[in-house]
C-alpha cells in the first residue's frame, strides 16, 4: 500500500524557501508540539514518584531539580507556552478571524512575545517562591 514510491517527483521542501515569519511560526508550532511528550512523560514520572516511596521520590525529584533537569524543565515550559499561544492563534484563524497578512503577522509577533514573557514571569515567580 506504499503509494509514495521513490519514483515520484517531490515537491520543493523547506530548504528551498527563504524563511518568513508565518512559515517559521508554523515550523515552531510543530517542533514545540513534538517536544512536549518529553515533559508530559517527565511530569507523570514525577507524579508516580510522588505516589511512591520517599527514597524513590528523592531520586526522581533530585534528577529533575539538577541543573540539566532544570534546563529541560525551562525549555519544556517555553515549548508548552509557545505551543499554547500559537495554538490559540490557530483557533482564532479557525474561527475565521485575523486571516489577512498584517493581522496574521501581528498575531504571530504577539505569540512570540507572549510565550517568552510568560516563561520568564513563571520562572521568576517559581524561583522566588522556591527560594
Amino acid at each position: 500500500m506504499d503509494t509514495n514510491s521513490n519514483s515520484r517527483p517531490l515537491s520543493p521542501h523547506l530548504q528551498i524557501y527563504r524563511p518568513n515569519l508565518l512559515m517559521v511560526m508554523s515550523i515552531l508550532h510543530r517542533i514545540t508540539g513534538a517536544f512536549l511528550p518529553v515533559p508530559v512523560f517527565l511530569g507523570i514520572w514525577w507524579l508516580a514518584a510522588l505516589a511512591s516511596s520517599q527514597r524513590y521520590f528523592a531520586e526522581v525529584n533530585g534528577l529533575l531539580t539538577s541543573w540539566p533537569g532544570r534546563l529541560v524543565l525551562v525549555v519544556s515550559l517555553y515549548a508548552l507556552l509557545h505551543h499554547a499561544f500559537s495554538g490559540l492563534r490557530y483557533l482564532v484563524w479557525d474561527a475565521g478571524a485575523g486571516l489577512d497578512v498584517p493581522a496574521a503577522r501581528r498575531l504571530s509577533l504577539w505569540t512570540l512575545f507572549g510565550a517568552i514573557a510568560t516563561t520568564l514571569l513563571v520562572v521568576a515567580v517559581f524561583v522566588i517562591k522556591a527560594g
Binding site: A58, A84, V122, V125
Partner: peptide, 22 residues
Amino acid sequence: LANLFFTAFLVLLALRLAGAGQ
C-alpha cells in the same frame, strides 16, 4: 481549547508546589 485552560491550571499548580517537599 481544553488544554489552554489546563495549561493555566498546571502553571498555577507548579507555582503552588514550588519549594514543597513530598
